[in-house]
C-alpha cells in the first residue's frame, strides 16, 4: 500500500499470527478470562503507559489549553516594561522562545493540539468503521463483488494517500468536514483489505461452518459470529490508522491545506511558516511544534504496538 504502510506490516502480521480461538470450544468465562489477562499484560507494559501519558497530555492540552499556557496563541509576548519580544530564543520569559512576530511558541504548541486531535481521531474512526463493514462483506461473500472491490482497493492503493488527498482537497476545497471525509475515504481501502484477510481466515473455521449448518443467515454470521472474533484486529487497526491520520493531517497542514475556519494554532502550519528561518539559526519556532507532532505519533505507535502484543500474548 502506498499510504504509509508500516501499518500493513503490523496488521498483516496480526492476521497471520493472531491466535484464533474457537468460541465453541471455549466457555464464555474462559474468553472473559483471556480478555482480563490481556488487559493485565497491557496495563503493565511500559510502552503502553508512556504512550497513554503522552497522548493524555495532548488531549488535556486540546481540551484546556488555557490551563497550561500563560499567553493566548495569537498574543504578542511583552516583557514587564512593555517591550516586545521577537525571535527571542528560549528563556524563562518564553520557555520555547518567540516566533518572528513575537508570539509565544510554547503557548502555540499547547493550543496546536486541538485541530489535530479533532480531525485525526474522527477520520480514523470513520475509516475503520467503513473499512470493517466492507472487509467483512467482501471477505465473507467472496465472488465477483469481492473481485471487483479488491481491484478498486488496489487502484486506490497505487497512489500515495497524501497525493490523492492533495488533489481532492484542492479540487473540493478544504473545510474541516471535507478534510475529515477525504482522509476517511482514502483510509477505508487499506482497512478493508486487512479486515477482508482476517474474515477470510475466520470463515474457514469450524464455528462458521457450524453456524451455516444451523441455517443462520449471512448477516447473523458476520455480525454475531465473525465480528466478535476479530475485535482485537479492529482495535489494533484503529490505533494504527490513528497514527497515520495524525501523520496525514500534519503533512496536509504543513503543505497549507488546513480548515479555512482555522483554529488559532496548528503544528503543521507553524512548521511551514518558520522552517525557512532554520538556516538563520532560528530553530525554536520550527523544532518545538515538529517535536510535538513527533511525540504524539510516537505515543500512538507505542500504544498500537502494546495492544497488538497484548492481544497476541
Amino acid at each position: 500500500m502506498t499510504d504509509l504502510p508500516h501499518a500493513e506490516d503490523l496488521t498483516a502480521a496480526t492476521v497471520f499470527e493472531a491466535e484464533i480461538t474457537d468460541p465453541d470450544e471455549l466457555g464464555g468465562a474462559t474468553r472473559k478470562q483471556i480478555r482480563r489477562e490481556q488487559r493485565r499484560i497491557l496495563f503493565r507494559s511500559p510502552a503502553f503507559i508512556v504512550g497513554v501519558l503522552i497522548v493524555g497530555f495532548w488531549i488535556f492540552s486540546a481540551l484546556f489549553p488555557g490551563v497550561l499556557s500563560t499567553w493566548g496563541p495569537k498574543d504578542f509576548v511583552t516583557t514587564d516594561d512593555g517591550a516586545a519580544l521577537v525571535r527571542e530564543p528560549p528563556s524563562s520569559d518564553a520557555w520555547f522562545g518567540t516566533d518572528r512576530v513575537g508570539r509565544d511558541v510554547y503557548s502555540r504548541v499547547i493550543h496546536g493540539a486541538r485541530p489535530v486531535l479533532i480531525v485525526a481521531p474522527v477520520a480514523a474512526a470513520i475509516a475503520v468503521a467503513a473499512g470493517t463493514l466492507l472487509g467483512l462483506v467482501i471477505g465473507y461473500y467472496k465472488g465477483w463483488v469481492d473481485e471487483l472491490v479488491s481491484r478498486i482497493i488496489e487502484g486506490f492503493l497505487s497512489v500515495p494517500v497524501i497525493l490523492l488527498a492533495i488533489i481532492v482537497l484542492f479540487t473540493f476545497g478544504s473545510s474541516r468536514p471535507v478534510i475529515i471525509g477525504t482522509i476517511a475515504i482514502l483510509f477505508t481501502p487499506v482497512v478493508a483489505r486487512t479486515i477482508r484477510a482476517a474474515t477470510l481466515a475466520e470463515a474457514q473455521l469450524d464455528y462458521v461452518t457450524s453456524a451455516k449448518m444451523r441455517g443462520e443467515n449471512g448477516f447473523f454470521i458476520i455480525t454475531r459470529e465473525i465480528l466478535p472474533n476479530i475485535t482485537n484486529i479492529i482495535v489494533v487497526e484503529l490505533t494504527v490508522r490513528l497514527g497515520f491520520a495524525i501523520f496525514t493531517v500534519a503533512t496536509l497542514a504543513f503543505l497549507g491545506i488546513v480548515a479555512d475556519d482555522l483554529t488559532d494554532a496548528d503544528w503543521g502550519v507553524d512548521v511551514s511558516e518558520n522552517y525557512e528561518q532554520i538556516a538563520n539559526d532560528v530553530w525554536w519556532p520550527t523544532v518545538f511544534p515538529a517535536l510535538a507532532i513527533a511525540s504524539i505519533v510516537i505515543a500512538v505507535n507505542l500504544i498500537a504496538d502494546s495492544i497488538d502484543k497484548a492481544t497476541r500474548a
Partner: peptide, 18 residues
Amino acid sequence: LALSSIPEFVSGVILQAF
C-alpha cells in the same frame, strides 16, 4: 517503531536544525 511514521517533513526540519 518509535521513529517510523514520524512525518518526513518533521524529521527533515529536525535534521536541518541539528
